[in-house]
């Protein structure tokens, strides 16, 4: 019993220490974000590459997934609501479901699977190979050169892809609705925009921006601890992805308050 309590205590103490270190890392990153020299030639190259890897290369997967989910979800939901005779609620439900919930969540999951793992492994390998020492030898700040371009690209890609997801899902859903009900696309958009209010937009911005920050900053923070051995890489990846999962849950939970 004592051992179990000791372990539980140890878990909470370690979690608290990790959280405080992460918050300190965020404080440093955000402080440097104000003076961020995005158009410095060396930094801009890293930024452009990361936008390409995160936001452009994902498109062949992202587009069909958005469309399929749009068709499946909106189609099924419409059928269900028509069955209940409550089709006038379509706009409200689509707004809540797609814009507030699904678009940020699914985009974050896809970016985590694709980009967070890659960034985590990349930073861990750079630490082990001594590439971060090369940057230090030339007075190149790793926060400026390595972390911030990735975090800023995460913010931009998350917001853009979530917006893109919303449009594709609504368009996909419209194709299904148009077969079942005789409504125009213009009418569907009117239904959605009638129900879209300020808190929905704030919630969308809150979720996309915070998730965009987490998707890059949590894996980077975790991989910074990798120093010497190759065996540390899978551990850092695993820890990073689990922490990111907790981060996503945190955003989803706090999103309900908006």
């Amino acid at each position: 019993m004592n051992e179990a309590i000791g372990r539980l205590g140890g878990f909470f103490v370690n979690s608290f220490i990790t959280l405080s270190l992460y918050l300190n890392f965020c404080k440093n990153v955000l402080a440097k974000l104000i003076r961020f020299k995005l158009f410095n030639p060396a930094i801009f190259l890293v930024f452009l590459r990361q936008v390409y890897f995160t936001g452009v290369q994902i498109m062949p997967i992202f587009f069909p997934i958005s469309l399929i989910i749009g068709i499946a979800l909106v189609g099924l939901l419409t059928k269900f609501l028509v069955g209940l005779g409550a089709y006038e609620q379509i706009g409200q439900i689509l707004t809540i479901l797609i814009i507030r919930e699904l678009a940020p969540l699914l985009t974050a999951v896809l970016l985590s699977l694709r980009s967070s793992t890659a960034v985590s492994a990349e930073i861990a390998v750079m630490n082990i190979m001594g590439e971060v020492d090369t940057l230090n030898a030339y007075n190149i700040d790793p926060v400026d050169y390595l972390y911030l371009p990735r975090i800023v690209s995460g913010l931009i890609c998350m917001f853009s892809l979530a917006t893109f997801f919303s449009f594709i899902a609504i368009i996909g859903g419209y194709f299904v609705i148009s077969f079942q009900m005789n409504i125009t696309f213009d009418f569907l958009l009117t239904l959605i925009f009638d129900y879209l209010n300020f808190s929905d937009i704030i919630c969308f911005l809150y979720k996309t921006l915070l998730l965009g920050f987490f998707v890059m900053s949590i894996p980077i923070f975790t991989s910074m601890s990798v120093k010497n051995a190759n065996t540390e890489i899978p551990i850092a990846l695993l820890k990073g992805m689990m922490r990111l999962f907790y981060g996503i849950i945190f955003v989803e939970f706090t999103g309900f308050l908006i």
Partner: peptide, 24 residues
């Protein structure tokens, strides 16, 4: 012990310190 950055090309590696510190 100070290796080139593996995800940059030779050209980008050479330009890295000067590109970061000076306007080139």
């Amino acid at each position: 012990r100070l290796p080139l950055i593996s995800n940059l090309s030779v050209l980008e590696n050479i330009m890295l310190p000067s590109g970061y510190h000076d306007s080139i």
